[in-house]
């Protein structure tokens, strides 16, 4: 039987503690601060998913702060013309062993090309 070191960042359980923003446009590019348990900056991905769809959030190694926070940009949702809000899952995934954290929710909002409702007036 293999023995796992629960404290080592290469095998420890992944956990998302908190996001500063949990809603954003379906076009993506929302900046989000995530607080998490220890991760390795070169062995971690943030996966947005719903059913068959998945997309990776965008961040650089320098956006991983002291192993416990990641500042990233949301990926665009698969469709840009959603008519209502869409709730998706956000998880950490370790690249080396494909282990996932428990998901947290993020809500994509419909893209409104006329935010000030100029056309309606």
């Amino acid at each position: 039987n293999p023995i796992y070191d629960k404290k080592a960042t290469t095998t420890a359980e992944l956990k998302i503690n908190r996001l500063n923003v949990v809603r954003g446009p379906c076009t993506g590019k929302t900046e989000v601060y995530m607080l998490c348990d220890k991760v390795q900056k070169d062995d971690i991905e943030i996966i947005f998913s719903l059913d068959d769809w998945e997309a990776k959030a965008e961040f650089a190694h320098t956006d991983v702060h002291r192993q416990i926070a990641i500042v990233f940009k949301t990926p665009p949702y698969q469709e840009q013309d959603v008519s209502g809000e869409v709730e998706v899952n956000v998880s950490l995934r370790r690249i080396s062993d494909r282990m996932y954290s428990e998901p947290v929710r993020f809500t994509y909002l419909p893209h409104n090309p006329d935010p000030y409702e100029v056309n309606r007036k």
């Binding site: 503690n17 908190r18 500063n20 607080l35 348990d37 702060h65 002291r66 416990i68 926070a69």
Partner: peptide, 8 residues
């Protein structure tokens, strides 16, 4: 205070 390196 999150893991000594972040504060909300």
């Amino acid at each position: 205070v999150h893991k000594q390196y972040a504060i909300v």
